[in-house]
Write a protein that binds this DNA or RNA. Structure first.
Lengths: 147, 147
DNA sequence: TTTTCTGCAAATGCTTTGCATGGGA
DNA sequence: TCCCATGCAAAGCATTTGCAGAAAA
């Protein structure tokens, strides 16, 4: 996991470099994403910031996530039921393990994905540009007790 | 790829066995899904059937897909932008290769996924129940010409 | 001072749902 | 005949957009 502080700096650089202003709301969003504790949802980000910025709008969260995505500083984990989650700590595609009970999302260590990509490219004659790999299951805590 | 005719039969059996009626609309949807040419979207299914059933409703397509999903006869490939696709030919989770230009979806041959699943389970202490693996890229036709 | 950003509310677009009618078995 | 299924329209929801005022730089 990358150092959250460094990630925030990197994001700020990208923003400035592309002619964007650093507003307090934007910075707050960037900080949460750089940390990406548990891969937050839009709601989670919004709720967390609402304490400091009572007038904060959901639209602002959406707009900034969109911006950071376009700058390649945030990875979107989109789900069809609208429960999207975000990772600004490791913005490059990587596998995720998702607890279908408590919603926790964990990054596993996996090596063999690159060779798999090569195999697929060779097999299908596609030029592979990106990928998405999710495992769904029950985490250890949820198996143990109701918590 | 499974034989579409056998798949239709299998789906019909599941429907009857669970006390559901075989209506013309339902049968038409089942046939298209059993074939799953290019992994159709709801719209694609709807459009294809509209010719034979001018009064066909989108709601009916949605309701039947929901039903077939609950019976385990259809695999849903959900995308956050609402461009969901369906596979009633191979309803068990398997990798997909998606052309981001023309939308084509192909099933590659991949073996190493099972061991990867075991690795993840061991690594994270999750009980893995399902997975989703998509590769995104440009297909051979789209690379060649505009088509 | 200029240009971008924010907040609010209205608009979107896919999917689901309520209800009355219609059609399998 | 008895229910389940369909069609239509309205409702839901996450996300996007238009606009006017606020605030970076």
């Amino acid at each position: 996991m990358a150092d959250p502080k460094e990630r925030v700096q990197s994001i700020i650089q990208k923003l400035k470099g592309s002619g964007h202003k650093i507003t307090p709301q934007r910075l707050a969003i960037a900080k949460i994403l750089a940390d990406s504790k548990g891969h937050p949802s839009v709601e989670a980000i919004y709720d967390q910031i609402s304490g400091d910025f009572p007038t904060m709008s959901l639209a602002t969260v959406y707009r900034n996530i969109l911006l950071l995505k376009s700058l390649g500083e945030v990875l979107e984990l989109g789900f069809p039921d609208g429960s999207n989650r975000y990772d600004g700590n490791r913005p490059i595609p990587h596998p995720h393990v998702i607890c279908i009970q408590c919603g926790k999302i964990v990054d596993p260590d996996l090596e063999s994905l690159e060779e798999m990509k090569a195999e697929v490219a060779n097999d299908t004659r596609f030029t592979i540009l990106a990928h998405r790999l999710d495992f769904f299951g029950i985490c250890h805590q949820c198996q143990a007790g109701e918590k």
